[in-house]
Amino acid sequence: MNAKAIRRARKSVQTIGVYALLIVIAVITIYPFFWTVITSFSGSGGIFKFPPPLWPTSPTLENYVYVVQNVPLVRYIVNSVIICFFGVAGSILVATLGGYPLAKMEFPGRDFIFGAILATLILPNEAGLIVNYITTIKLGLLKSGPGQYAAIILPSLASTIGIFLMRQAYLAIPKELLEAARVDGASEWRIWWQIMIPLTAPTVAAFAILQFVAFWNSFLWPIIVLTDKSYYPLASGLLDLQGQFATNTRAVASGTVIAMLPILVVFLFGQRYFMRGLEGAVKQ
């Protein structure tokens, strides 16, 4: 065997090793989801057994029917959709507006404001939850239906990451473009709306996905702040479901699958933007 063949053989052994490792890690990250899906479709028999089943025992949809009939699941889903829609739209508006002067205008206090916004990423704020709870009560937000949604959304609307991402995106837009528009007498609002927003659309998309995931997944704040469970988003409702049907793992598993599905769809279709948004957050 000549040297070239040896090198090629070594290379392919290495590639096989890499794939083996990649597959092992993938099994560890995916298996809990796989187990949950299987359980949600299982009709009967023990769920916990050695070895764990690789296919639903007597496959059925009845667990899904059961949760939909016994839990206000549809209501939770509607709540989640409302929270996500206004939460994502609102946080995009706040971030796209706020990032613009920080990137492209000169005014006293700019660097201080930007520094203060960034500092919130590191400054410990362990009592934040308590004070925000008090603020929510004092604002009287829990007295009406729309108010309850607002109570959930408002604290997360101004996103530091979002303002930072938008500022970075605006900075990349050439100065000449802006100056030409200003010379032509365009107002800052028009420049923002007609030049800045269209040119930063990919970043806006990335941030939108980031926020969608965050709003869809948040469960703790609604549980703390809401007294009326009928305004719970799906993730909070899921935990309530676990409390009620702790012994019916199959039913809880189907609720879990339903809670996971929209995230997976959005993430798989938008992951290119999503990853870029995440990377943009570290690259200065």
């Binding site: 809990p32 187990w35 990853m275």
Partner: peptide, 14 residues
Amino acid sequence: YIPVVSSFAVVGLM
């Protein structure tokens, strides 16, 4: 990356 985009509500139950 899928665990990252999952809620702790889902992850904790699983």
